[in-house]
Design a protein around this nucleic acid. Structure first.
Lengths: 340, 340
DNA sequence: TTGAAAGCGGTACCAG
DNA sequence: CTGGTACCGCTTTCAA
């Protein structure tokens, strides 16, 4: 079809009978160049199917216009890569980045790059880093922060961090969830999830706070610890009920996926939801309302969050300071809990 | 902390008292360099936290080691970005690419880059393109193929294409799904989905084939057309039942998300599944077995598919031909259909 | 408003 | 086994 993609800026310049400087400026829409010249050169470029060589311009300008997005997965379970919520965050980030003129280099924490700053930033692969999820260990994130590389993290903004964190008020969300169950009459509420995990531990705190506020008996430990996948949650709940019977009447789940796993275990035993056990999730994934019963959950505004993250990152790229931002959350009441 | 990331290969060379050629070779593990020298130079690099500047080496080698992955979304519904299945494919591709030494530049078809070859390949943003999903229009994909750029597509390999397509035998999958319903006693089976959509139209064919084979009455049209999101499916089924009553006893859904939407509409009317209506999905997303009843569906092996796609792409990068590959599919029988 | 020319930081050919 | 050096293609001062 086309006689190779050999044409360069210099080639175009020769064709047009102008200098490379002029072509470069014209294609970058530099107002120094007369509108007329700009138009005709841009037309010529289209006609010859010419695209600026990014490798070259990146080398010259020391700017890539690329942002590395790192999915921070728990070390063991590469399962969580299937959590629709994290993937939605990635999708929204992709949109937001593009709207701001950046491209997205997707990576994840299992990729074994020792030093993120060195790998992505020093090597000119990207201008900045967005980490999605704080995971169990924040060491690598802190290393990036320490290196001074532009960085923004999706996680819990209340956690005291040396880097800007954008995320929901997980503690509040879980508090609202727990309170909602209590107000619906639940007395023995289980927290299901992994309190070791940064964001989840905040959710655990919210749960504890609500219990305390309503003077529920917390003398026995009602925490059921499990990996944050639906499969792990299902298996754990199944086992717990088998071992101890139905000693609870409410579940605050660390995420929707976890909640759905638990739901399955309960339904297999014909436990009535919400009458025997009420259950609240976290995230409001699309599937939440499709389930039967539909899942009461805490909604997070990932679209807005993604935009804020990109803006905060761009601030840093411009040498301005960036700050953590707490996103509003919302309790979405559905059928998996009794209405008050 | 560190006195900036100023150090370059030339700087390292000076420090080590060797030439830039030697450092370059050493860091690239070129066997020309004595093992001893290699080791010490690599150590020095680590010590100074040095990373090769990719922009520079890409410019010089004319190779980026980046693959652009384009999520091909239907023009209207940016919803489908929330389909867990597509996102799983992306996740698996990310793994596969990394294992082969490539990085992933994620994009989607809504990004409005007119000409993918020009934008990604001619500009040296990436060495090759993987398109996930054929969508409703394959025009842009065909343009890439015509340009001769390295390309692989996730889609339906049976569709006659000028480019290598890796994907499941959608027709067969749907045939198996439909046959399974028929064998369970269903007489009036609806196809729910969008027959305009490339892969879905193959699924439609499999459905038709099974009906014909078993001499089911196909005089009346049992196709319920809807966008391939759970929301669209739910609304459409809700409306259809409202308008026409329960005129069917089986549903072959174009995807799990669609199936789950339909499931909700049926359950809200207390229609018994699988006794009144049997339903089969497609994809086997994680959620499929969590639902109640758990969803009978067609499983696709995305992990293997991702590896094959990357291999086929690399073949092209090496100037070798690439071919389409049909992936095995498997009927997973669960509770949303009667067992035979 | 446009042009000339000096790099950006590696790589790889050609010598030795 | 190692070094010298000419580029890769674009951007951006400086000069005109």
């Amino acid at each position: 079809m086309n006689n190779d993609n050999k044409i360069t800026l210099a080639g175009l310049a020769k064709l047009a009978g102008v200098s490379t400087s002029t072509v470069s400026r014209a294609l970058n829409n530099n107002p120094l160049i007369k509108q007329e010249t700009r138009d005709s050169l841009q037309a010529l470029a289209k006609q010859h199917n010419f695209s600026l060589n990014r490798a070259a311009s990146r080398l010259r300008t020391q700017k890539t216009n690329v942002i590395a997005v790192i999915l921070n997965l728990s070390d063991s379970t590469d399962q969580s890569i299937s959590d629709p919520f994290l993937l939605k965050v990635v999708g929204d980030l992709n949109q937001a980045l593009n709207q701001h003129g950046y491209e997205m280099l997707l990576s994840n924490s299992l990729m074994a790059h020792e030093d993120w700053t060195s790998y992505f930033i020093n090597s000119s692969r990207a201008d900045g880093i967005i980490v999605v999820g704080q995971g169990k260990s924040t060491q690598k994130i802190e290393d990036v922060a320490l290196s001074g590389a532009p960085l923004v993290v999706w996680g819990d903004p209340k956690v005291n961090a040396t880097y800007p964190v954008i995320g929901s008020d997980n503690c509040l969300g879980s508090y609202l969830a727990t309170r909602h169950l209590i107000e619906g009459g639940c007395k023995r509420i289980v927290f299901l999830g992994d309190p070791e995990h940064a964001e989840m531990s905040e959710r655990y705190k919210g749960y504890e706070k609500a219990l305390a506020e309503f003077n529920l008996d917390i003398s026995i430990d009602l925490t059921v610890s499990c990996d944050i996948t639906s499969k792990a949650a299902y298996e754990k709940m199944d086992q717990v009920i088998l071992d101890h019977g139905l000693f609870f009447d409410g579940i605050v789940a660390a995420s929707d996926m976890v909640a759905l796993g638990a739901l399955k275990a309960l339904k297999e035993r014909y436990i009535n939801i919400p009458n025997d056990v009420g259950i609240v999730g976290f995230d409001d994934i699309v599937m939440a309302e499709l389930f039967h019963p539909s899942l009461t959950t805490i909604q997070q505004d990932t679209k807005t969050a993604a935009n804020i993250m990109v803006e905060q990152l761009i601030n840093q790229l411009n040498g301005q300071p960036a700050k953590s931002v707490v996103m509003d959350i919302k309790l979405i009441t559905r059928k998996s809990t009794k209405s008050v």
